[in-house]
Write a protein that binds this DNA or RNA. Sequence first.
DNA 1: CGACGGTTTGAGGGAGATCAATCTGAGTGG
DNA 2: CCACTCAGATTGATCTCCCTCAAACCGTCG
Lengths: 234, 234
Amino acid sequence: MTLISVRPVPFGTGRSVPTLMIMRLSFLTGSGRRRHLDPGETLLWEGEEAIFVANVVSGVMKLSTQTSDGREQILGLAYPSDFIGRPFTETSPYSVEALGEAVVCIFRRLDFERFVHEHARLEHKLLERTLSELDKTRRWMLLLGRFNAEERLATLLLEVASRNTLPIDGNAGQFDDEQFELPMSRQQIADVLGLTIETVSRQFTKFRDEGVIMISGHRTITILRRDVLEALAT
Amino acid sequence: MTLISVRPVPFGTGRSVPTLMIMRLSFLTGSGRRRHLDPGETLLWEGEEAIFVANVVSGVMKLSTQTSDGREQILGLAYPSDFIGRPFTETSPYSVEALGEAVVCIFRRLDFERFVHEHARLEHKLLERTLSELDKTRRWMLLLGRFNAEERLATLLLEVASRNTLPIDGNAGQFDDEQFELPMSRQQIADVLGLTIETVSRQFTKFRDEGVIMISGHRTITILRRDVLEALAT
DNA sequence: CGACGGTTTGAGGGAGATCAATCTGAGTGG
DNA sequence: CCACTCAGATTGATCTCCCTCAAACCGTCG
């Protein structure tokens, strides 16, 4: 939570958008509102009208979609400074939900679109962000299409570790990228990786028994053999 | 092949980019070249410098990536009028290869980027195209993460049928979206769907035996029970 | 005709799903 | 401080879908 104060809250394209432009956006639209989300609270519903776009301020959001018979697939995760929402389309192609406690900065989609139209530089940044999001999504396709359970979990652990912003022992400012807290439950991990909760659990146990990771209280992970994980994650 | 003459060759964002702008692009850069590709010929290599961006004129291209140990995953297909390539980045994050005979209209990436910078309207169209490509890619993630073999093939058949531009019996101008030619081999279908060739073949046989499709000479498919496929594909 | 590439069909095995039982730990109330 | 509860996690047993390996089939081309 205290992360907020030490981070800028860039709009649209993360760290690379000039803060000045962000400020002006807030001014012009008058709609850049902070909003707190409880665990499991949904910001956008798949198929519903997409009223908002937003930036993640703190917490982790999941983007997900469902088959007609209710199977869920997580499409991606959004971390602080990530942009979420779908400009230039009426209905949201996926749902956006908070994994844990989260804070987002929301803008009315129409205001945002109008503003983008009038500011080519922001549009360009949004384009670059979207292109790299597309790259990321395609890498995830490789995972879903070709990786086995072990490789999938290794990839996720490294991904979360690289996004890690958890100070150890409440020691604010001290970061240790080999120990971190999982922002999601086993079930949510299973959904992200396209596996079942049992398979995920067995893989955790396997990594623990092999001395690759240490697990404290389900959610706190310490990476002991990063090399092993990296070899698996390609 | 004769399709070419009856279709515009829009640049960057398909049907929605004004032809005028396309013309001007060709003029300015002087590099909008037609290029013929043989089956299996690769236009861009994963990890190599991305020299080109291009538009598909005819044929079908595949975008693919590989794991470190050589397993391939197809990331998507590009049909006539689709944009391919990755502007604003040095190296191509995936390979682009022609499935069959293909013609593309290539532009030097740097020329394209410069031009985009100077033409906000084109940039906007490219952004919209990229956003919808991202949507499409995410739908494919659902397929890879949650669909079984039957559902995957049903999805592909409907996708190809909807892209179908094959006149029946050489009767140009006459289109029948329930009969079409597959632009790829069984092996390529397997790669697209994240399956093996044997599983794909068995599914084809199963659909045929169930009276869902008709198969003539491996590649020509007639959909007899679209409702069944749609129920599976969701 | 024979050769060869792509496809189909068959038999068997394995990774992960499914079904089911047990465990853990945080929260609650006595 | 200790039962009790309950959701989430783990472990076990079994099954199933798809992969793997292998053989047969088919159409094309020399």
